[in-house]
C-alpha cells in the first residue's frame, strides 16, 4: 500500500496538493488529510448522505468516490457556506426553523439543499422532498427541514 498518487484539489477556495493512497476515499481526504470534519460519515452504501459535498458544482456522496477521482476538482463543503462571517441563508433557516437536532446529518443536508436551490430557486414541497431524498435525518422527522429550505428559498429570492 505504499504506492501514492499526487493530486490537486481545491476545497472551499483553497488549493491543496497531496500524495494519497489510491484507495483513499474523498471523504477521508476531506476529514483526515484536510481536517475539515464538518463532512460526516454515516453509512457505507451511499444511503445516508451525511458525507454529501459539491464537486465541481454537483452533489457527490464523498464516501463513494476515491480522492484520486477528485483530482483537479473544486470541492465545496459545509465549512465553505459561511461568507464574510455571515451564515448562508440555509444555515440561518435550519437554525430558525429547528431543522436540526443532533446536527450530524446537517452538513450533508445543507449541501444537498444548497444544490437544490441553485438548480431550482423556488422549489415546491414535492421538489424539496425529492431534493433531499438521499439525505437521512433520524432526529427531525424532516418536517422542519422542509420548512427551513422553503423559507431559505423565499428569503434568497427576495434578497432579505
Amino acid at each position: 500500500m505504499s504506492e501514492r498518487i499526487g493530486i490537486t484539489v481545491t476545497v472551499n477556495g483553497t488549493r491543496y496538493e497531496r500524495e494519497v493512497e489510491p484507495r483513499l476515499l474523498l471523504v477521508q481526504l476531506i476529514r483526515e488529510e484536510l481536517r475539515l470534519t464538518g463532512t460526516h460519515i454515516g453509512c457505507d452504501t451511499s444511503y445516508c448522505g451525511a458525507c454529501t459535498i459539491l464537486l465541481d458544482g454537483e452533489p457527490v456522496k464523498s464516501c463513494t468516490m476515491l480522492a484520486v477521482q477528485a483530482d483537479g476538482g473544486e470541492v465545496l463543503t459545509v465549512e465553505g457556506l459561511e461568507k464574510d462571517g455571515k451564515l448562508h441563508p440555509l444555515q440561518e433557516a435550519f437554525s430558525e426553523h429547528h431543522g436540526l437536532q443532533c446536527g450530524y446529518c446537517t452538513p450533508g443536508m445543507l449541501m444537498s439543499a444548497y444544490y437544490l436551490l441553485e438548480q431550482n430557486p423556488d422549489p415546491s414541497n414535492a421538489e424539496i422532498r425529492k431534493g433531499i431524498q438521499g439525505n437521512l435525518c433520524r432526529c427531525t422527522g424532516y418536517k422542519n427541514i422542509f420548512a427551513a429550505i422553503s423559507d431559505a428559498a423565499a428569503k434568497m429570492q427576495t434578497g432579505s
Binding site: L36, G38, L87, F94, H98, G103, T106
Partner: peptide, 15 residues
C-alpha cells in the same frame, strides 16, 4: 433559537 446550532450549522461540532 438553539445555542447548539451556532457550531452545528457551520460543521464545527465535535463528534
Amino acid at each position: 433559537r438553539r445555542k447548539e446550532d451556532d457550531r452545528l450549522v457551520r460543521g464545527n461540532g465535535l463528534f
